[in-house]
């Protein structure tokens, strides 16, 4: 027991706590000039440059809005699926379809979106074939665009299967269908019973998933790398590309961006126990209610 605990603590420190502390500490110290080849002693110069520059805030705003939009779209589609696929045969078929979608890696999805939605892509070629006189320039800009349509689309293609599978699983495990049926017997319409009874029960259990999905979309990298614009870039791409890919002089700036990213993540993590506790207590009370 003692030996096992020692091994576990050593592993915890070496493989989880040390890397976590190193990531945050390294970025923080580098950003104030205390670490790295360009260290100058304690300085706020890089922070001023980042805060007053035109890179950080647009990227942060774009990352947050893209993450919110993708998460909301995934959750809404997942919930609509639960409402629509409420017959067991349909549910099994949808489950299989979602499993197919869930197996697609982000990089493959990003590649498909690029090949489908770019101006030289398959959709534009299809329109040329179907619509005489259609020009390449007539096709709307859907990738590497200002509205991040391609990134959101790739996020949905990867996020909807997960959300759908999870929500269908919750719907079945918690017996939400029984509550909806009860509401219908009490006189509620089919749509209203699902929206007023089923969806709130789903949401209470899906808060943690929504949080994790948001964080994942906020941190997305592969899809924005292929489908995003050069300016503004999403946070992950901005940080990675400014950490010496083009100019070593930008390296301290990239760690300022990384520190801001970690601060946002820490702020979100403070909310995590509340989401997790809320989900657990709701589940317990629902289970108790179901048992009663």
């Amino acid at each position: 027991m003692r030996a096992e605990r020692i091994v576990a603590v050593v592993l915890l420190v070496l493989l989880v706590l040390l890397p976590a502390a190193w990531m945050v500490g390294y970025a923080g110290f580098y950003s104030v000039g205390l670490l790295g080849l360009l260290r100058t002693g304690l300085t706020a110069r890089w922070w001023w440059q980042a805060c007053l520059g035109s890179l950080l805030w647009p990227s942060l705003l774009l990352s947050l809005t893209t993450a919110v939009l993708t998460t909301v779209l995934c959750l809404v589609t997942g919930m609509l699926l639960c409402v629509a696929a409420d017959h067991w045969r349909v549910e099994r078929g949808v489950g299989l379809l979602l499993t197919l979608g869930a197996a697609l890696p982000v990089s493959a999805v990003a590649f498909v979106v690029l090949q489908m939605c770019s101006r030289g892509g398959l959709l534009a070629r299809g329109l040329v074939a179907l619509w005489p006189g259609f020009q390449q320039s007539d096709f709307p800009v859907l990738v590497n665009d200002g509205w991040s349509v391609g990134i959101v689309l790739a996020g949905c293609v990867t996020g909807v299967p997960l959300t759908g599978l999870f929500l269908l699983s919750v719907w079945r495990a918690a017996g939400i269908g029984r509550y909806v049926e009860l509401a219908e017997r009490l006189g509620a319409g089919a749509w209203r019973a699902r929206i007023d009874v089923g969806v709130p029960m789903l949401w209470r259990r899906a808060r943690l998933l929504a949080f994790l999905l948001f964080v994942w979309n906020f941190s997305a990298w592969e899809a924005p790398l292929l489908l995003g614009r050069q300016s503004p870039r999403l946070m992950s791409v901005l940080i990675q590309q400014s950490s010496g890919q083009y100019s070593l002089q930008d390296r301290p700036l990239s760690f300022v961006f990384a520190t801001v990213y970690f601060a946002v993540l820490a702020g979100l993590l403070l909310w995590l126990p509340r989401a997790a506790t809320g989900a657990t207590s709701e589940r317990k009370s629902a289970d108790a209610g179901g048992a009663a």
Binding site: A27, L212, S219, M235, A258
Partner: peptide, 14 residues
């Protein structure tokens, strides 16, 4: 924390 951090950013720091 490591689980939620973007791999590209984590890798840059590590």
């Amino acid at each position: 924390l490591p689980l939620l951090t973007s791999p590209a950013i984590a890798a840059g720091c590590l």
